[in-house]
Design a binder for these strands. Structure first.
Lengths: 155, 155
DNA sequence: AGTAATCCCGACAGATTCGGTCGGAATTCG
DNA sequence: CGAATTCCGACCGAATCTGTCGGGATTACT
């Protein structure tokens, strides 16, 4: 099971915006060139990010997109939720409204199976909860958290 | 991002086989009825499980499928890999051959992004590594690990 | 031997999603 | 005004998902 390229492209877009943070809006054409991604496709993705309040847009000439907040205030779980939808390995394990969605499970044997999806969902959420965009912006990764790269190599 | 119904149906199938473990082969028709799933579709799924060595088949009349080993010797990560393919949130984070697939990443900015996918992958793998089919077979869940259900409710 | 049950296997097919493309309208800056 | 840019909806080919169908191979039972 995998994320789609929406997730990948969108995160790369956010990283680029992170590097440019504080320098005013950047045009999509600029970012599409730098990341070698199709600009019209990025247009679609950035809409989701804008609707989620993660980036703000400036229309007209010299317009573009920029982060709505500083990178360390943008949790990666919010980015991926905006791009890929709710983080749920299975419908019966959505994490949006945390309470009272048990009735969606109708059969008995499946409850034990549900337990599996919930564990997976929680593992992903826990990982994403601990990360912000700042952890992925190159300068900060190199300066502040070099040990994270070491940790993740061979766990 | 989510697993497909292949994963769900396949796991439910395995749980059913877990409950019947030790009682000889069970026909797919039987399991399809009990889980209310389309039998021809289950046929496809069970092929993957058989090819992965997780279940063994007996042909002919009174034939069917049964677990290849006892439930506590079947790690859930093997079940999901057989059903859904490699557990990788993104192509650059496959976990099959653990060494030397860095060269697939060609751009520089993406390396920091790759770091994210690897963390997610590791989180899922770690969760799945700790679970076997025995954890999902109803009787054992109720008798041996009731506290797990408590733990996972509101983390 | 015959028959019923069952796995095995490949082909097909409708729906949905993925991964974009295209064209144009609206907005803003110079 | 004109150029740059976002905004937005429509469209589209390919792949995947979620099955269905038909028949062949194998075995147990009578």
């Amino acid at each position: 099971m995998s994320f789609s390229t929406k997730g990948e492209y969108g995160v790369r877009l956010m990283v680029q915006l992170g590097r440019r943070y504080g320098g005013g809006p950047s045009s999509l054409a600029e970012i599409a060139t730098e990341e070698d991604l199709p600009r019209p496709y990025l247009e679609q993705l950035v809409m989701s990010l804008r609707d989620a309040g993660l980036v703000i847009s400036t229309r007209g000439s010299h317009g573009g997109y920029e982060l709505a907040r500083s990178p360390d205030e943008i949790p990666m779980i919010a980015v991926l939720r905006a791009l890929e939808g709710p983080i749920a390995p299975m419908i019966c394990a959505t994490d949006d409204s945390e309470a009272a969605h048990e009735p969606t499970c109708d059969r008995t044997a499946r409850c034990t199976v549900n337990f599996l999806w919930i564990r997976i969902r929680d593992a992903i959420s826990a990982t994403l909860d601990g990360m912000t965009l700042a952890d992925l912006v190159p300068e900060r990764v190199a300066l502040i958290q070099p040990m994270n790269l070491q940790e993740s190599r061979q766990p």
